[in-house]
Design a protein around this nucleic acid. Structure first.
Lengths: 158, 158
DNA sequence: GAGTAGGTACTCGGATACAACATGTCCGAGTGCTTAGGG
DNA sequence: CCCTAAGCACTCGGACATGTTGTATCCGAGTACCTACTC
């Protein structure tokens, strides 16, 4: 019950790309260097974000990754589902229908499983919180890091 | 980002044990037969619930598993943490401190990471929902299954 | 008939095997910019 | 000076290797109950 590290990486990269929007596309080599992450695997995860339409990739010598939408229009839910897939944390396999438990049930199982419903309610509360926050909120949270990132990146590529 | 099937099994077993409280301890063989689940692995998961103090195990020929507390005092959160461990869904590894990103930060990192805080807020909403529901709520959700379970179990052991 | 020894059915804990998935690495193809060479 | 071709740096997609975790099975030890046997 733990999401992959790619989620943390992806979120930090989205915020950083938001701060560096004026610098043009940021190559994967710079991003990996910036956070000291494995370059090839980070690329794989950012490609997932690109497929989901959250990032834009520019080929060519001055290419790299950039945000495909305004930071205000990218929610944490978008990033999580793009990286983890549309999988439900609690997949109900309807074990109540199996074995002796499922015999002679009549129309009893027309109603949804109470356990699955309770777990789904909790999952929705989680999703609601994630959908309520955007990359723009994260960018505004630490304005000091924003300026420091811009300075550091210009020094890095200069 | 998916919890093991043991969680679904454990919840269904807790509800069933609640319904069968008058029948005495239920051996693992009956529970596995009831839901058509692999007996040995189900035992392992129920042992985790026993270690957590949610179930009580009785050795001997008329032994088996039974609820260790009143159904009203067992929350879904209890069951999930007992089976999945106290692991956070989003472990923050502080990648902002790593690589070039962490250089010359001053006291900037004294404040908690905004990304981790946002993810934690969503996680807490999830935990709150899980802690608000108990095994007793699940038992009351389908009174028809309760009676049918008792009849079926008596027929099974009779 | 009372006490004791053995058998039985269950739990418990550890050891092991297997499968699925996350993580990490590598390579070939495609693309656009840059540069060198030729007219 | 202009046009073209080659080289370069990057992304993309797939293939592959590795490590970790979830799933599943098996075995020996311990325990309580039941039965049979002995005195």
């Amino acid at each position: 019950m733990q999401m992959g590290e790619g989620v943390e990486w992806g979120l930090h990269c989205c915020v950083t790309l938001g701060w560096l929007a004026d610098e043009g596309p940021v190559p994967i080599r710079r991003l990996a260097q910036w956070f000291d992450l494995p370059q090839e695997y980070l690329k794989k995860r950012l490609q997932a974000l690109t497929r989901a339409g959250l990032l834009a990739s520019t080929p060519g010598v001055k290419g790299g990754f950039s945000l495909a939408r305004a930071p205000r229009d990218i929610t944490l839910m978008d990033v999580v589902t793009a990286l983890e897939g549309p999988v439900e944390p609690f997949p109900c396999t309807e074990i109540r229908r199996r074995g002796v438990s499922g015999e002679g049930a009549g129309r009893e199982f027309d109603r949804p499983c109470g356990i699955a419903a309770a777990m789904r309610r909790a999952e929705l509360a989680w999703r609601r919180e994630l959908a309520a926050r955007t990359v723009a909120d994260l960018m505004d949270h630490s304005p000091g890091s924003a300026e420091r990132t811009r300075r550091g990146y210009r020094r890095l590529i200069g």
